[in-house]
């Protein structure tokens, strides 16, 4: 099929360059621009936006170190990392269990795992708002069963955001993990047992290392959207406990500080790149190790 010429690629590349690559370069430029009086920006170069991440300027002009935005960045990375780890811990046993089932059951279970993912994200986050909310399902159950009366608010904290994020992104972890476990040769597990390895040792030394590519792929799929989460911090975090996603969103909405929003967006992109490079480097080193 030599007939497919290079021009077939052009629409995709023009689209990505025009709506993504060039605009990302514009974001970099905007992050060094001066804030406009009514939103927007003026192209007067300044590093004010980046200085704002670290310092606040008092009303009399004195500059003070202020960690509030660093805390938001740290919280974002921490919550995204926790989301990814929890997804791994939940997804692996479930995916492993699914591979043990008979063919038909396996297909049905895989569909069952993916189905909630087809349901709108905002509906799934809303569901947790009802469950965790005041007088919600959990509070009621605890009160009716007499376990406790006073549980404090379940909403508007880091834990609520974490639950929402794990729930939102877990199918993205299960599918690649399932694929890697399915490829696992059962003979290797039997061989490990024949060599008197316990189940725990087999899991740690045989199964998990062989499934690592699936876990790593799942980690990328979960970690990237978790870092940029917007809905979970706004609705389950109550908009007070911020993550980078809703901090950026605010700057282009109510706060009208485009250069600062652009600077935070650049920081977010740097975190993603660092993670992808780290993940890519590990994968590369592993490939080199196998060749040697």
């Amino acid at each position: 099929m030599r007939e497919f010429r290079i021009w077939g690629l052009l629409p995709a590349q023009i689209l990505m360059v025009a709506t993504l690559i060039v605009p990302v370069l514009i974001i970099v430029a905007v992050s060094f621009a001066t804030r406009g009086p009514y939103g927007g920006f003026d192209f007067v170069p300044t590093t004010a936006a980046y200085r704002q991440i670290l310092f606040t300027e008092g009303w009399s002009g004195e500059v003070e170190f202020n960690p509030q935005y660093l805390i938001i960045i740290a919280r974002t990375v921490l919550l995204a990392t926790l989301t990814t780890l929890i997804c791994m811990v939940l997804a692996f046993p479930v995916a492993y269990w699914i591979t043990l089932q008979k063919r038909t059951a396996r297909t049905i279970l895989l569909v069952a795992v993916t189905l909630p993912f087809w349901v709108s994200m905002i509906v799934r986050v809303y569901a947790w708002l009802i469950i965790l909310g005041n007088d919600g399902v959990i509070e009621k159950t605890l009160r009716l069963t007499g376990i406790t009366d006073d549980i404090g608010s379940l909403l508007f904290n880091n834990r609520a955001m974490l639950v929402g994020m794990v729930y939102s992104y877990i199918p993205l972890m299960i599918l690649p993990v399932f694929a890697s476990i399915e490829k696992l040769d059962p003979a290797l597990i039997e061989a490990s047992h024949d060599l008197h390895a316990s189940r725990a040792v087999t899991l740690r030394r045989v199964i998990l290392p062989l499934c690592w590519p699936g876990l790593a792929a799942g980690a990328i799929l979960v970690f990237v959207p978790s870092l940029g989460a917007v809905l979970e911090p706004i609705l389950l975090g109550g908009g007070k406990i911020m993550m980078m996603g809703n901090l950026i969103q605010m700057q282009f909405g109510g706060a009208r500080n485009w250069p600062f929003g652009a600077a935070v967006a650049i920081m977010l992109m740097c975190v993603v790149m660092a993670f992808l490079l780290f993940n890519g480097l590990r994968a590369m080193r592993k490939a080199v190790g196998e060749m040697a």
Binding site: T19, P23, P225, V230, A265, L268
Partner: peptide, 14 residues
């Protein structure tokens, strides 16, 4: 591989 919020900001500015 880009968080969607970055894409959103990119097209908004564009």
């Amino acid at each position: 591989v880009l968080p969607e919020i970055v894409l959103a900001v990119a097209v908004l500015i564009l």
